[in-house]
Structure formats: structure tokens, C-alpha cells
Design a protein around this nucleic acid. Structure first.
Lengths: 153, 153
DNA sequence: CTATTCCCTACGGAATTTCTAGGAAAAACA
DNA sequence: TGTTTTTCCTAGAAATTCCGTAGGGAATAG
């Protein structure tokens, strides 16, 4: 399960991804649009800033925008920054590998083999989906829904 | 990430799956073999018992065994019992669905669509893998490793 | 009737998660 | 210059969850 923090991060990023990239949005604006706790969101955006996902400017006229094009930011990157490993067990994580304390022979562990496949499946989806792709999908679905409802009239 | 509890459960079940199914194993035996905290494992097996995954007998000659054939127990079942939802977000869970508090329009949520695919990928792996399958895979790998090392001599 | 083994409840400590408070630093503007 | 706006930063409060352990009850075998 993703943390709230991670979910909020993704929500905020989707808002920014839909915006013109040189238009800065205020934390309070994003928080209001998405119904998120403002102070918490502030901390989240700060962390995303430190990790090069968003950029910011202070003072009047300041705010946040994506630090790079929306098709270069994947869900996988964001989840890893916020929550750490994608893998269901640390011992099958690629980026956050850690040995199991009680495991005697890692290579012989059947659970590990299964979870490795799960990790790959997760990583495949999350690393294969950029913010831009998610936005595009959303638009496509909205369009077909609109077409279906107008056809029904 | 799976909890320790869930991992321990899977470890214990793999031990039982490799055993003759009418041979009961003691909690302490399983704990020792797998290096698990005994009291905690006791609680875990109890829970698996209540959920029909293992069966038990008390007193001298007692212990635990699988409650059904190892090919009818999937990783998905076990994880759901121990940790709840497989899904990365409750709002895309099939068995533990829960609405997001702050979400305005679930159908329009792009994050949800992405996470739905992730959930399906996870469920596909975990529900598609039984204890029996994991045991078989383990044997197959061990065999090819043994063949490779003997060929190298 | 004694030893063994699982069953059950309760709880304690640690870690994590989810926020919030309060103010410093930068930037814009008057 | 100084006032306002906005992000940056640290600290920590409150709640929850996680990881076990203690201690004894109930069934079973011999």
C-alpha cells in the first residue's frame, strides 16, 4: 500500500502536469483543488523539489511547476522517492535491496523467486507510466465517455 | 511492502507444503528451521488456522499441517489474510475496497487507473502462484543448478 | 493425572505515519 | 527601505501500526 504522502505527491504532480509548465502554482492552490492538507503538501513538494521532480520560486508570484517535461517523470520515480522500494520484499528490490535477516540461503528461497516476479510486474507498470501518459489516458477516457453519453441522447 | 508477519506466514507454509500433509509439525520445529520468533509464529499459525489455510491438533503428537492440498493455497490468499489488500491504493482494491476521502470524482482519477493496472499485475502473479507451484519451481531450479555444477567438473 | 501442545487475550515498546507549529530566507513590490 | 508574499527548514505532537512477548487456559495422548 502506498502512503498518503505518496498519493498526495502523485495528485499534486498530476495537477502540475496538466498545467502549462512555466505557470507556477501555489501550494495553497494545489491543496485547495485536490483537498489536501496544506502544510503536509508543502513538505511533500519540498521533498519533490530536492529530488529534482519539481522546481519552485519563492516570494510573490512564486510557486511550483514540474522541473522537467511530464513524459520524463514516471510514477516509479515518484513512488521510490516517497515510499522507497517498489518491491514487496526488500530482498528482491533493485534500488533498495536489503538481505532478510533470518534467510539462510537467498538463492534457494522460493518465496523470493515469486516476489521477484511481483516486483518486476509492479516496476514494469510504474516505470512504464509517465505523468504525461496518465494525463493522455485520462483525456482519452473522458472523450469516449462524452461520446457515449451524447450518442445516447 | 509485505509485513514481517506475512513473510513469516509464507515461510512457515512453504515448510508445511514440502512436508507430507498428514505429518504434523510443531510450531517450535518450524520456528527453529526457519529462524522465526516462536511466539509470534504461534500467533500467525493460529490466524492461518482460523482462516482455513492450516489445520492443527493439540497435545502430545500435535502440531500443524496444511488444511488443503498445496496447489489450492495461493500466495494471494495468504497475503490477503495477513496484510489485507494487494492493491497499492484501497480505492482500486477488489476485496478491500475503500473510497479515498479527498477524491472528488473516482471515475475521472488518472492515478486510480494506473494503480488499477498495478493491482491487476500483482494479483495476477500472487493468485496465479500456489504453494505447490513455488515448491516445484524451487526443485526445478535446484536441479538445473546441480546439473550445471556437475557439468563444470 | 501429568506432560505436551495449541489456543487465546492482553499488552508493551518501538517505529512509522500523518500532520502542524513556528519562524527564517528569498523575492517582489511600493 | 520595508512590507508582503511565498517557499524553505526544523522540530515535534498525536495517532496508528507493527513486532513481538507474557501468562495462562483448553484439549489431547499416554
Amino acid at each position: 500500500m502506498l502512503s498518503q504522502k505518496c498519493k498526495y505527491a502523485l495528485q499534486a504532480l498530476m495537477v502540475l502536469a496538466k498545467e502549462n509548465s512555466d505557470n507556477l502554482l501555489l501550494v495553497s492552490e494545489i491543496a485547495e483543488r485536490e483537498n489536501l492538507p496544506k502544510k503536509f503538501l508543502e513538505a511533500i513538494l519540498l521533498e519533490l523539489n530536492r529530488n529534482g521532480i519539481v522546481r519552485s520560486r519563492r516570494g510573490r508570484g512564486g510557486g511550483y511547476a514540474l522541473a522537467k517535461p511530464a513524459d520524463l517523470i514516471t510514477f516509479g520515480q515518484v513512488v521510490r522517492i516517497m515510499d522507497g522500494a517498489l518491491a514487496p520484499l526488500a530482498c528482491v528490490s533493485v534500488n533498495y535491496y536489503r538481505r532478510c535477516d533470518e534467510c539462510k540461503d537467498e538463492q534457494a528461497c522460493e518465496i523470493r523467486r515469486v516476489m521477484r516476479r511481483v516486483r518486476d510486474a509492479i516496476a514494469n507498470e510504474l516505470d512504464g507510466t509517465s505523468l504525461a501518459k496518465a494525463v493522455a489516458e485520462g483525456k482519452a477516457v473522458a472523450a469516449t465517455l462524452a461520446a457515449a453519453s451524447s450518442a445516447a441522447e
